[in-house]
Every structure is written in C-alpha cells, then in structure tokens.
Design a protein around this nucleic acid. Structure first.
Lengths: 233, 233
DNA sequence: TGATATCAACTTCCATGGAAGATGCAATGG
DNA sequence: CCATTGCATCTTCCATGGAAGTTGATATCA
C-alpha cells in the first residue's frame, strides 16, 4: 500500500521515534485531541510520548511543512486552524488534481481502467447503501475510498502525495460538514458519471465529470461555512 | 496575504542556521555542485558551512520532504536523481495545476487580470527578443518569469507552493533540455494564446491553452530524454 | 588463489545541557 | 487605582556525546 513520502522514506525499516511522534501528533490533531489554537511545548509532548524533545521537534517540523502546525520561536507549537479561504485554496487544488487523475485513469489500457471502474462502482454502491441507512460515517468512509482509488489509479506518486497532504488538512472540515450538507444524492450521481467515463475510456468526459463534482462541492461548502460564521475550524 | 507555512515561519525573522543550511544545500543541488548520486555526510556539510550537525540534519530533512535528497539511515545523504518517469509525473501535476491557475486568473476582475496579462505579455516579448538574439539563458529566465506570474496570479498559496517544490526538482532538467529543444517558437505562440484568453476573460480558453502548452512540452520532452538514454539526471 | 570471517571506521539517531529570547506576573511608583 | 518596570519562568535553537548499525577492507584459512 502506498504511504506518504515521509512514511515511504522509512517504510522498509522499523519506524523511528520521529515517525512515532509524527503519527501520534497527527492522530491527535485529526481527532481534535489537540484542538485548533491549542498551544503545546515540545517538552510536554515528549514527556507524554516517553521520548526526548529531539524526535518531537523533528516531527513537528514535518507537520509544519504540511501546514498542520506552526512553530512559533520561543513560544511553542500551535495547531493551525482552517479559514474558509483555506478551504477555497484546497478545493482549487483538488479540482485541478483530481480532474487530471480521472483523465489519466480513463486513458489507461482497457483492462486496468475497468478494474478501477469496478472498485469505484463498489464504493459508490457502498455510499448508496450508507445513505439509505442514514449512516453518515459509513457514507464518509465509502466516499473517501472512492476518491482514494481514483487518485491512486493515476499511478503518480506526486499526485498521491499532494492529495494525501491536503486530505490531512481537510479532515476536520469533512467531519464537520458531513452532517450539514444536503446534496449527498447528487454526489452519488456525480460518481456514477465519473465511473462511466472511465469504463468507456473517455478521458475528456472523465476529466469534466471529476472537475464539476469537486467544483460543485466547493460552491456549496464555502457559503455554508461562511453562513455558519466559522472563521476557523 | 497568506503565505505557506514554511515561508511564514522564516519570513518575518532573521534566518536561522537551519534556513542557512537549507538554502546553501538547495543552491548546491540546483547548480550541480552536489551532483545526483553524490553522497555526503551531515558532518562534512556542517564543517563546510561552519555550523554543527543539527541544523544540517534538519535542513536535509526538509530537502528530503521535497524529494531533492534521500537520507539513508546509516549511510548518509544522497542527492536524488530524476528519471524520465519522474518527469512524466511532474508534468502531469503541472498540466493540472497550471491549467487551473490560468482559469482562475482569467476569472479575476477585469482590472486585475489585465494587469497580469500585461506582465505576461512583457515576459513573452522578452522571450521573443532572447530567441531572436539566440540567448538561451535569457529565454529561460523570461519563460520562468511568465510561468511565475501566471501561478502567483491565481492567488493561491498552496498552488504556489506546489509549483515551487516542483520547479526545484525540475531545474536541472530545464537547464539540460533548454538547448536541445527545437520548439521554442511554438512556446511563444502558446504563451500568446494564454495571454489573450486571460485578457478577454475567458476562463475555459485560458484553461485549455495553458493545458495544451504544458502537454505539448511533456510530449516532446520525455521521448527526448529517453532517446538520449538518460536514465537519470 | 579464492572465499570467509572479523574488525575498524564511518554513518545517522537520539538524549541532554547551555544560550538567547519572549511572555506574563508581581512589585513599585505616580 | 492605574501604568510601568523588572524578574522569573518557559520556550525554542543549537552543540555535543553516546549508542546502534552498516560498509568495506584486511587478514586468515582451506
């Protein structure tokens, strides 16, 4: 299974303390154990994780590189918040990258792209089931699986990595907005269009379908966040 | 204006030793002072830069994050080479990102996009002049300026950052292929199309023009590298 | 002569201590 | 009572030393 590049650099050997600290801190941020704006110190985190400050410091540098935290000299490590403008930026990247990924997948040899189309169709079916059952968590997981298969199908490590980084940042926004959006059925229809274009091997159609899917989500999400008066999350 | 996380961390205060080491190492890689495959040790670089091993180590972690070097656990720091397949990956990202950037610029208010169109037209004119004079270095600089203005015009810190990272990786390939490519006049014509679409405010046309410009370069560059038998550079 | 085993010389990784600096609180002066 | 100054505390940043591990050469034996 493909991992992020940082993980890939260490994938063939046992995880170092830096990797442990990185994973633990990222998990804490994802699950909001460290809320946005929370200010920690390397010393405190090191104590909690049972290691010294050095690996914690290096891990926080990596997290800063990914935009999840900010290291303020002489102050500490602060967890970054996401403003609506950040969401706009992120979606502009996703629109571009995922559109291209869908195009590349649709240009694959027939056998390859049909296998991917099958996997995508399965995830879409899972979304329908979850929607019918009103299970938003399952819906979110199936949706994530769909987009992961789509991205990895493009077989481009840099694309995979960019999307991985962005997904880490988006995770909190996703969780929050999942239960506020009303256009879930539309997403299922969008996914169907993408799958169809990939199955028939029509790169231009796949590109357009993936683009408009993300553009629509962006157009719905940002006003929603602004209406809620969420200056950050 | 929002900056990237790493730039923000270093933009408003004097550069730390880590930043010095980072800049020095990146420059050395760009200018091939450290050739691909070259294997250094943190101790040696630290000695050369007049600092201790810690800032060198942290800088090399950042460079590893950007894919410029690889830290092999008990061996040393090796400078990454670029295979033709890396070039393919990079161009797939550029095609997607720069196409979207052009689209976003063309959707700006008239005054903004005209100012950007003027700057882009100026760079294109510089390219014509340099081409007529046979000055490949000036041509490359003007070309780089064009694409930089285009990307920064999109006003998206994440897009800027992604392209910056990719350009760092591409620099050696650019320098090498600049004097091997025969389609320089076509690039000038492509740029003219992009500028025109931005000036008239036609996002779809700008998107298509920027896309096909990069797609054409990709289609010409990869066979060129493979024909030369360059397994890495 | 060729193959193997041992060792010495490197490397990164991590812990820890000192230095420089920012912040917030307390004490003091108006 | 409020403002200001000084100090104690806490932070990151960087240097350095020890530990673990890999590599390549050298010496030894069949």
């Amino acid at each position: 299974m493909a991992r992020t590049a940082s993980a890939a650099a260490t994938s063939d050997r046992r995880p170092s303390l830096v990797d442990d600290a990185y994973a633990a801190m990222k998990e804490a941020i994802r699950e909001s154990t460290f809320a946005p704006g929370y200010q920690a110190s390397a010393q405190e985190i090191a104590l909690r994780l049972g290691m010294s400050r050095t690996p914690v410091h290096e891990a926080s540098l990596k997290l800063q590189e990914e935009g999840l935290v900010r290291i303020v000299p002489k102050r500490g490590i602060v967890i970054c918040a996401l403003a609506p403008d950040d969401i706009r930026e992120i979606y502009d990247v996703i629109v571009a990258i995922e559109g291209r990924a869908a195009e590349l997948v649709a240009a694959l040899p027939a056998a390859d792209r049909e296998a991917i189309a099958d996997a995508l169709a399965a995830s879409t079916a899972d979304m329908e089931t979850a929607f019918a059952a009103g299970d938003l968590t399952a819906w979110g997981q199936a949706d994530a699986a769909f987009h992961r298969v789509l991205i990895e199908g493009a077989r481009n490590g840099r694309i995979t990595r960019i999307v991985q980084t962005i997904n880490d940042q988006m995770h909190r926004a996703r969780m929050l907005t999942l239960r506020l959006r009303g256009e879930l059925p539309q997403s299922i229809a969008d996914h169907g269009l993408i799958v169809g274009a990939i199955r028939t091997g029509d790169p231009a159609a796949a590109h357009a379908a993936a683009r408009s899917h993300r553009l629509r989500t962006q157009r719905e999400l940002i006003p929603l966040l602004e209406k809620l008066g969420l200056k950050h999350l």
